[in-house]
């Protein structure tokens, strides 16, 4: 059957140009730190690769730019940390389901990673507990991981618990990995910061925020707006208040800016996307930021 991974790949090529995808791959290839000088082989230069990694002599011989690949950087571990609470089943900024965007983002990065020969694992978590899925490289494995995400995120799923998810990862994930945290506009507290500091000590962490719906936007003729956490409707009268709308937008922007700043202080790169079309450019921007931050 045409699986989730296939869909993700199709969407990637719909939403991004070939060039962007190349850039994305290059960006991914360059985010890993800790090169050894254990030279392994050469591969074709991909835009986004570090210029200093180019093997100029080999390039001169070959006629095309080639970069050195080192053993240390050859096989990385990408861990997808996906919040699978019911918050993620809610509406995103674009009106799509946040779940679709999360699957798209996780699938896109995972497929790039496997093309690079890296292994991908998945850790999902909500209030009902967290669960880890082992590393793998094949498409079938990725498909299975994406299905886990797809099945767990439902409107009647347990509530979201990013803290529990981070805690599990901090305790269980010992292999040095690149962590992609996929969550929504969660407000980061001191406890989050403490756990992230611990994670940051061992892993590379990149943080992908899937923007939540604008609560004050008029949805036209669509049904009542309700909060998934408490299943309580937000009265239309309140949502149409103009002064409140201004204040809400201000506060929402402030929250986004605050969490990005706090994450940056911890050395964690973060990016916020609002729709599936945002995923590829968003991931690229995220990796680009990450690469710059390392320098």
């Amino acid at each position: 059957m045409a699986g989730l991974l296939y869909r993700v790949k199709t969407k990637m090529s719909i939403f991004a140009h070939r060039k962007t995808l190349d850039l994305l791959e290059g960006g991914y290839a360059s985010v890993h730190r800790g090169r050894s000088h254990d030279f392994d082989d050469l591969r074709a230069y991909v835009p986004g690769d570090e210029v200093k990694d180019i093997d100029w002599k080999a390039t001169a011989r070959h006629g095309e730019p080639l970069v050195k690949r080192y053993i240390a950087s050859r096989r990385h571990n990408l861990a997808l940390l996906v919040d699978t609470g019911r918050n993620m089943a809610a509406t995103a900024e674009s009106g799509e389901s946040k779940k679709d965007i999360a699957i798209m983002a996780a699938g896109a990065l995972a497929s790039i990673a496997t093309q690079h020969g890296d292994v991908v694992s998945l850790i999902v978590g909500d209030e009902g507990g967290s669960r880890s899925y082992p590393s793998g490289q094949k498409d079938e494995h990725l498909e299975r991981l994406l299905r886990v995400v797809d099945e767990r995120i439902r409107l009647d799923a347990p509530r979201s618990d990013v803290l529990g998810l981070l805690d599990t990862v901090a305790r269980q994930l010992t292999i040095r990995s690149l962590l992609l945290v996929v969550t929504d506009d969660v407000r980061l507290g001191d406890e989050h910061m403490r756990l992230l500091r611990r994670l940051r000590a061992r892993h590379e962490v990149i943080w992908l925020t899937i923007g939540d719906a604008d609560l004050m936007r008029q949805e036209g003729s669509r049904g009542p707006v309700y909060d998934v956490q408490e299943v309580a409707a937000l009265p239309a009268y309140v949502r149409s208040n103009r002064a409140l709308r201004g204040l809400f937008e201000e506060a929402a922007v402030q929250t986004v800016v605050d969490s990005e700043r706090e994450l940056r202080l911890l050395g964690i790169t973060s990016h916020r996307i609002g729709s599936q079309a945002d995923v590829v450019p968003g991931l690229f921007a995220l990796l680009e930021k990450q690469r710059r931050a390392e320098r």
Binding site: N87, A213, V225, Y226, L234, T255
Partner: peptide
Amino acid sequence: LQRDGVPVAHSERLTEL
């Protein structure tokens, strides 16, 4: 509500104001 409504998360962004 769950059938017809628009589910949103983090309504505390609004309700805490």
